[in-house]
């Protein structure tokens, strides 16, 4: 049976740490970093990429368009 796997790449320096992506993620893939970027924002990252289903909800709700979403069927 085909399984869907996804992953995300966050443009860390453009992220403003608003956390909307984290709130929107249906699988709990995303967390906020402990480190900050050059603007001083804690940024989103794929803390549990194994959970990502590539639904792109995070990227679609992201105001700054910092998330690129990938998806494969395996």
């Amino acid at each position: 049976m085909a399984k869907i796997k996804g992953n995300i790449v966050v443009d860390i320096e453009r992220c403003k740490g608003c956390e909307l992506c984290m709130a929107e993620c249906p699988t709990g893939t995303i967390a906020m970093s402990k480190e900050v970027n050059h603007k001083g924002y804690s940024y989103a990252y794929a803390a549990r990429p194994d959970l990502c289903i590539g639904c792109a909800n995070c990227a679609i709700v992201c105001p700054d368009g910092v998330i690129t979403v990938y998806k494969i069927k395996i």
């Binding site: 790449v9 403003k16 494969i72």
Partner: peptide
Amino acid sequence: DIIKPGNIVYKRTDLMTDDILHYCPG
């Protein structure tokens, strides 16, 4: 392995310029 150009389902449009939006977070 998933992170390959062929597997992109969503990326920022090139019609947005490289400027970082001045709006507040969120």
